[in-house]
Amino acid sequence: MTKLRIIFSVLAVFLLMSPLAYAISGREVFEKVQALRNKKLDQKAEATMVLFDKGGGKRTRTLSMYGKDAAPEAYKVLIVFNSPPDLKDVGFLIHAHSAADRDLWAYFPEFKRIRRIPTASQDDSFFGSDFSYDDFSGPPDLNEYVYKIIREDEVIDNRPCYVIEVTPKKPRKYSKYIIWVAKNIWVPTKIEYYREKELYRAGAFKDIQTIDGIPTPFMYEMENLKTRHRTVLTIQSISYTTKYPDSLFTQRSLERGAK
């Protein structure tokens, strides 16, 4: 009998430790993350972006971000740079028809022309920063990825996190992401980007504050481990109670710098 008890105990521990034993699946975690993101679609934010090169030099720029829930389509985003003077009114517009189907445009005032950013480039660096266009876009299409919890209760900034391995179903620039999602508030706090088995980029999302009832990181850090280039995006102010008209998210508005 004792022997049987031991066997059952061992089995129980084994089952509890196996992924099947997690109370929640990786996909479910990201559904919660997605749900939170969907609440943030209507927003206005003022931010400062600082780019650090490997030699220690830095470039600072300020920008305004406008977002809109574009139901029945997905969302729209407009980003306009405010400084330095060389970049004033340089803008970036996204129309997401669905999470997977997005149109992106950029505007450079000195050329007085709008240019389209091809879909294939959307994994690329966002205007020289260490973020990609995807990072500035809205929620991705969950169905395009596979999610697997690999660890639980790893603590980042005093917050226990799920550590989830995210793998794209179709080939993309990054073959794998490891994402730390803070439990209960469903906010990513750390992310690693892999190409094959090599760690390529690493990001951290810090200083999480609750704004309009929505947990929001106020500092985003991203580092390219190959070039040793780092970008820090700091939110100066953000609001989720905005309801911008569609006319703000047009190419005309992009040309006018959202004025």
């Binding site: 970049l87 950029a106 005032p109 205007f127 020289g128 920063s129 190959k226």
Partner: peptide, 15 residues
Amino acid sequence: MGDSADVPDPLLFLA
């Protein structure tokens, strides 16, 4: 933005 070039500010290059 990769190893094949040293371009400190690609956004400025484009702008």
